[in-house]
């Protein structure tokens, strides 16, 4: 009897060792597989970044489709009309480009954002204008000074300058463009600014017709050579 009992105990022991070994192997396998899969999923980008890309690409592709429709219409007008049609198309394009390049006074719907804070820098103003441009701003001015990308915003001893002119706070930024998109952007921007301890005031209002009279000075090319 004692012999049978020892054999039985040793058999139980062996089974227990196998079961434990199996469990350890199972847990280790699961752990290794899960880590490998997590690493693979991070190879590209995280879901938030991918979701941002999808949203941005949808909006971008919609804009591209609108541009294709407009260009196709111009092409049809040119194909069917000769010189008078060409003059019309060229005059319309010239006007559009003067608006885009900030060379003429403009008006239209949009938002007016007011930011009052001591110690804001040129980088802060660039960020604010970039946000509004990404939010659909087509024409912008800060304290009455016209801004388009390419107009220098610099930090000087006198403060922030736009094309060499000092813009003292409070900054009143007028942005003409899609009022709904601009309002969303301005809402987010002012919320973020309220979290900045330097900011005394950050507000915005949507306006049905904003007038920007300031223009950008033309800068003829000195170094750049366009195609012949």
């Amino acid at each position: 009897m004692p012999g049978r009992s020892r054999r039985a105990r040793s058999a139980y022991g062996a089974i227990a060792v196998w079961v434990i070994a199996l469990l350890v192997a199972l847990v280790a396998t699961i752990q290794l597989r899960s880590q490998a899969e997590v690493e693979r999923s991070l190879q590209g980008a995280d879901p938030a970044t991918l979701a941002f890309s999808i949203d941005q690409l949808h909006q971008a592709n919609d804009s591209l489709e609108v541009q294709i429709a407009d260009l196709s219409q111009q092409q049809r007008a040119l194909q069917s009309g000769g010189a008078p049609a060409a003059d019309q198309v060229l005059a319309a394009e010239a006007e559009q480009l003067r608006v885009i390049e900030g060379l003429v006074p403009v008006h239209g719907p949009g938002v007016v954002v007011v930011i009052d804070a001591p110690g804001l820098t040129a980088l802060d103003l660039q960020d604010a204008l970039n946000s509004l441009a990404f939010g659909g701003g087509e024409a912008m001015a800060v304290n009455g000074l016209r801004f388009v990308v390419g107009v220098p915003i610099e930090q000087t001893d006198s403060g922030v300058t736009i094309a060499g002119a000092v813009v003292l706070p409070p900054w009143t930024i007028a942005a003409i463009g899609d009022p709904n998109r601009l309002a969303e952007t301005a809402e987010l921007m002012t919320q973020q600014l309220h979290g900045d301890r330097r900011v005394r005031e950050a507000s915005y209002r949507v306006a049905a017709d904003i007038v920007i009279r300031a223009v950008v000075s033309e800068r003829p090319f000195v170094y750049a050579v366009p195609p012949p």
Partner: peptide, 22 residues
Amino acid sequence: RITPLSAFSGSGNEIVIDQGPP
């Protein structure tokens, strides 16, 4: 190419310019 209306955006290491891909 950067234009007078160009805008920059992004998330993490992704850089989006205007209507282009990241």
